[in-house]
Amino acid sequence: MTLTESPAAPAPSSQRLTTAKAMVQGLELEMARDDSVIYLGEDVGSYGGIFSSTTGLLDRFGPERVIDTPISETAFIGLGIGAAVEGLRPVVELMFADFMGVCLDQIYNHMAKIHYESGGNVKVPMVLTTAVGGGYSDGAQHSQCLWGTFGHLPGMKVVVPSNPYDAKGLIISAVRDDNPVVYMFHKGVMGLPWMAKNPRSMGEVPAGDYTVPIGEASVVREGTDVTVVTLSLSVHHALDVADKLAEDGVETEVIDLRSVVPLDRRAILASVGKTGRLVVVDEDYLSYGLSGEVVATIADEDPGLLRAPVARVANPDVPIPYSRPLEYAVLPRPERIEAAIRKVVGA
């Protein structure tokens, strides 16, 4: 700011927002900045997104840019792809990641592959936003994370914010990226008034525009005894557990991956190099997924970094059950995280 500027009503430098509101604010800034950004999906207009991912955007930008679609995921995700190819920057919402089954061809055979198949001549600057995660008894078809599945299929970046600051910075980065980016928001981190929430679902967010780099993990808690590599809602649980264990003298370092693709392998290696112990907490399925990929990163690079066997806390390859005690048994709840850390550090 210079002295010649009007001194009236300075914009607040930061506000306290929920993750959902921070995400919407990022979208709002990008839509205001770039007329080619549009938002498409089911119930994203007057409803504002089932998980509040678009609240207020229709009022501000109108139905030409914030567009309710029919329940035709193949058609409207494909529409997003074609529009991106022709120079728009569509953000397309798949209401639940679980619904990928009805439209996966457009996602992995088209959105993700066109750039490669065209030898780099065609870009698909599109964001696919989608809600993930369980913990509120929504059953086996509305509770999955599936980031390992998206991450397994080449050609799309995959980002998974856990908090308001990252939600805003990552959505801005995603919109500006020339690649397809899958932006996966856990319902449990959005700070929704109708769902149990961790205090970490609300936080300080700078008012202006900023980015969080895609592919860069964040050390959200420093520690010396054990590294917990995790993401999304499990970051909240891991931090709670880390606070509790600190009372017993166990210093836990918590890494929030923030991006699944590209995976910040250097951050994982650096932390495990420091602590010598690794626990991976992943709400997705155990086998053939992210937790195995994190462990393989150590095995590939330097298994000698480990002073103890690793532990993985993930869904034990079970469809997510409806009944609360059953669901809690398969999710990486704080009790399971704590037990895994204690086992790895021998405490």
Partner: peptide, 12 residues
Amino acid sequence: EGYPPALGQAFA
């Protein structure tokens, strides 16, 4: 699956 992207091109 070539139909849906064509919608997007037309839209753009």
